[in-house]
């Protein structure tokens, strides 16, 4: 029986929610088309994640274990993926769209002489491949696309599908893999990480995004206060990551990250299409901007027209009160 294979992304030992979204979609498709849904974990220590994964419905969990997978590095990851795919021979290899999967998708497709579809917002199987939808033109429009052949490799935008739990008796099969570090022509020297207690933006339930209107230390303080009341991740527009006020990894949008929280609050952000490309899928959008004609108000559910320095203090105070009750 042919297989739909979901690659499971793990950060700091934790399975990324977006991978479970993709796995849930593959479970659903497998059932609909009479196929098998399987998962693939490539990690220095895949066992704990494999155990967790049994709650999410794959019939087989393939693991590749090697200390080299402690940090992301494309050469060994690519080799492991290509080994696993050749062994499993799946119809589809699906990834959550992350910086890690974007790094290897094209190379994997070239290696397997396979079709690749990036950043899908929807996908389904056809008789001889995959069809689906993806946003284009800075997410101004949607294009319907198809790919033919076996396998098709694809990445899926976070928030495109719901996570559905499904207890199964999954078997765990380990795949042999050896890697000679001398083959490496890429060497990871160092990871400069954003402070580790920060909430992962792409997974956060609430996101506060700061834009150029947040001018100074006082503004940034208000942003942190708001984020801490709501236990939200902090993101920023390009105007602020470019200027160095916020870490570049916090950029939301076409160049930056895609977020899909329950609540997004844009503060002093105009709503340029390239920013909106990364947050339009948020469930509830709140915008605070002093310009009543700012484009962000066209997509905001709640548009607060006013000076952020005047609006945020009472807003934070009121939220604190609500939280306390």
């Amino acid at each position: 029986m042919s297989t739909l294979l979901t690659y499971i992304s793990i950060n700091d030992g934790k399975i990324k929610r977006s991978s479970l979204e993709v796995l849930s979609r593959c479970n659903e498709l497998a059932e609909k088309h009479g196929l098998k849904s399987a998962a693939l974990i490539i990690d220095q220590d895949p066992a704990p994640a494999a155990e967790t994964l049994k709650k999410y419905g794959p019939s087989v969990i393939y693991t590749v274990k090697n200390p080299i997978f402690k940090n992301h590095l494309n050469t060994p990851l690519l080799k492991a993926l290509s080994t696993a795919v050749k062994q499993i021979n799946p119809r589809v290899v699906a990834f959550a769209s992350t910086e890690g999967s974007k790094d290897i998708l094209g190379a994997l497709a070239a290696n397997l002489n396979a079709a690749a579809l990036a950043d899908m917002s929807e996908f389904d199987l056809t008789d001889d491949g995959v069809k689906g939808k993806r946003p284009v033109m800075a997410s101004k429009i949607i294009s319907a696309v198809e790919a033919k052949g076996t396998p098709v490799v694809l990445t899926v935008r976070s928030g495109s599908y719901d996570v559905v739990e499904k207890q199964t008796d999954s078997s765990v099969e380990s795949i042999d893999f050896a890697f000679n570090e001398d083959e490496l022509k890429v060497t990871l020297k160092e990871i400069i990480s954003a402070s580790s207690d920060r909430i992962d933006l792409s997974e956060a339930e609430a996101v506060i995004a700061a834009g150029r209107g947040v001018k100074d230390e006082e503004g940034r303080k208000l942003i942190s206060e708001l984020a801490s009341v709501l236990n939200a991740g902090i993101g920023a527009s390009r105007a602020l990551t470019e200027g160095g006020a916020y870490d570049p990894s916090l950029q939301i949008g076409q160049t930056g990250k895609v977020v899909s929280p329950q609540l997004y609050i844009g503060v002093g952000i105009s709503g340029a299409i390239q920013h909106v490309a990364g947050m339009a899928n948020s469930k509830v959008i709140v915008a605070i901007n002093k310009d009543p004609d700012a484009p962000i108000f066209d997509i905001a559910d709640y548009g607060l027209v006013g000076d952020l320095y005047k609006v945020l203090p009472p807003f934070i105070e009121e939220l604190k009160k609500i939280k306390q009750n």
Binding site: G100, D103, L188, K189, I191, I192, S193, S249
Partner: peptide, 15 residues
């Protein structure tokens, strides 16, 4: 190369 990765910026020596 300084690349933006999932957990931070990765400094990579590329031959």
């Amino acid at each position: 190369v300084k690349r933006q990765g999932d957990t931070g910026q990765e400094m990579i020596e590329l031959a």
